[in-house]
Design a protein around this nucleic acid. Structure first.
Lengths: 198, 198
DNA sequence: TTAACATACGGAGCACTGCTCCGTTTTGTC
DNA sequence: GACAAAACGGAGCAGTGCTCCGTATGTTAA
């Protein structure tokens, strides 16, 4: 009963299937492009990657900020859900943690772009940020705990602290080949590892 | 003796007069445009304002960052020198302080643009920032002290603190008509004023 | 003074970008 | 099926960064 208009409300015909599909495609494409080319990547590039026209992007996300925010939310969700999945799929919690952190670093590109895109409008940003913490800290903690439990890493590091550290390692690199945050994050993770005998 | 080549050094023929003149003109024009249109203003606009061709700008300042840094240094100097001048030129230290703060706010536009333009290369930025503090805090302090001395404002506020406060009021306004930093700075200054008996 | 050269200037032109607009295609409904 | 609404695609426009080279100007040596 899509056309049920019980009151003075607008009928609100449900979205067309292709529109929904394209929205998803765009989110994924934008995320990938943000990672490889930064949040200032040309819209054309995102459109090309998604295999859609530019008009489609502008219809779904009128401004760049809209797109960035949408990707941000999408990524937070994906990242949060990936935690348990990775843990279940891998025999080693440490490996799972590594994979998760990799996802997290990808995500930070968008996050920093967002912070920049939201110099004003700080209200919405606060809300988004707390959403980010609520969802992600527990996910990270679960992986961390599991790795400790399995004896792969030393205890004593909090998820929040680790995430913040990673976040800070990832600021301010814009095409500078001399600074690769991922290398440093890798180092950080290695530092977490419990020294293994033989 | 401009062509004296005492050793293996390059003769280093002195710069042409028009080149020097244009450099000054450009600095002034860029400063004005940065205030009215932000540091991302089109190069064309700056060139037009200075009455020179774009080639001239790019010859003097190969990248936008170069130009911004040069304007920054220039402004720090001008601001520092303006302190004593304004003080001497006006009967009221408070009026002088007001005028100085106005200059300072103009300058902050460039400063913030600079901070953004220097996400990487943080070494040079640090040096610039300490230069900024060394030059400007004393200038501000002098005005502040004079105004206290004259009984126009209440004592107890440090120059550094005031400047920092003003600086913070000036972040994150990019064409948002709802937020005008100057209004707030004016309020701050008014708050500094000693309540005067009619 | 003037010739000759190094230096600096100007702006047309190219490449690339954001964003709009509208003819075409797809989808859902009757 | 037929039809309208919704969504799509991408050509095209306007604006921008940056380069390049013919021209103008300042400077030096004779």
């Amino acid at each position: 009963m899509p056309t049920a208009s019980t009151s003075g409300e607008v009928p609100a015909r449900s979205k067309r299937a292709d529109a929904v599909r394209n929205q998803q495609t765009l989110l994924a494409a934008a995320a990938a492009v943000f990672v490889s080319s930064g949040v200032d990547a040309p819209i054309r590039e995102i459109a090309a990657r998604a295999g859609v026209g530019m008009g489609t992007i502008y219809r779904h996300f009128p401004t760049r900020a809209d797109l960035v925010v949408a990707v941000y939310r999408h990524q937070v969700e994906a990242c949060a859900e990936a935690g348990p999945t990775l843990l279940a799929g891998s025999g080693s919690p440490l490996v799972a943690l590594r994979q998760w952190v990799d996802l997290f670093v990808d995500f930070l590109v968008t996050k920093h772009g967002l912070a920049h895109a939201m110099q004003s409008d700080s209200g919405g940003f606060e809300a988004l940020h707390s959403y980010f913490l609520d969802r992600l800290v527990p996910a990270c903690a679960q992986l961390l705990d599991a790795a400790v439990e399995a004896g792969e890493i030393s205890p004593g590091t909090e998820a929040y602290e680790l995430m913040r550290g990673i976040g800070n390692l990832c600021v301010g690199r814009d095409g500078d080949p001399r600074y690769d945050p991922r290398r440093l994050v890798e180092l950080l993770l290695r530092g977490l590892q419990r020294p293994q005998s033989s």
